[in-house]
Amino acid sequence: MGVVGDVLSDGLGGLSHNVITGRIEDLVKWARSRSSWPASFGLACCAIEMMATGAAHYDISRFGMEVFRASPRQADIMIVAGRVSQKMAPVLRQVYDQMMEPKWVISMGVCASSGGMFNNYAIVQGVDQIVPVDVYAPGCPPTPETLIHAIETLHGLIESGEIMRRREVTGAGADVHVEEIPATSVPVLLGSS
């Protein structure tokens, strides 16, 4: 990365070089992890704690996540907060399918992770039967601290992972299918019209 001088007082003029170098992959991963918008998928008691995490005391916007999107198309992370019933399972899957790649899933609470104390006919015993889960947050309900820890863990995963992981290989996480465009040798000339 470039050498940065006193940016606060000098602005960009404080850069000793006006070019910053780095790997685009790092930049992409950094950007992704720092503004991952969650889809509001509140189901039960855990959803209340998820909302509490978004409120004043815990202030989830410190992690660039305060924008809970109602539309799955605009969301990056699905926080499955609460118990998933048999009736809800197809809906959950559909919302997941509607989310754009790359996407991640946090399974919040024991109910979402394993069915929790409700091992009965009505509850899906673990949401990972329906969607691939990246991080499990334990607890019933997980306190906002636990959720924040899960989010941090996920950020770590996003930043250390490949930007294009394939689910067939890893079995989890973002399912990005890009067509490889072979590099061409045609130079891009700047300044020529």
């Binding site: 039960a44 118990r83 409700f118 009965n120 009505a122």
Partner: peptide, 24 residues
Amino acid sequence: YLHTGMEKTAEQLTFMQGGTNVTR
């Protein structure tokens, strides 16, 4: 969409444990 079968689960839990169930 949030049917949890709590009334069925309650039949498995003792009166002592029942509170864990109903509180949810």
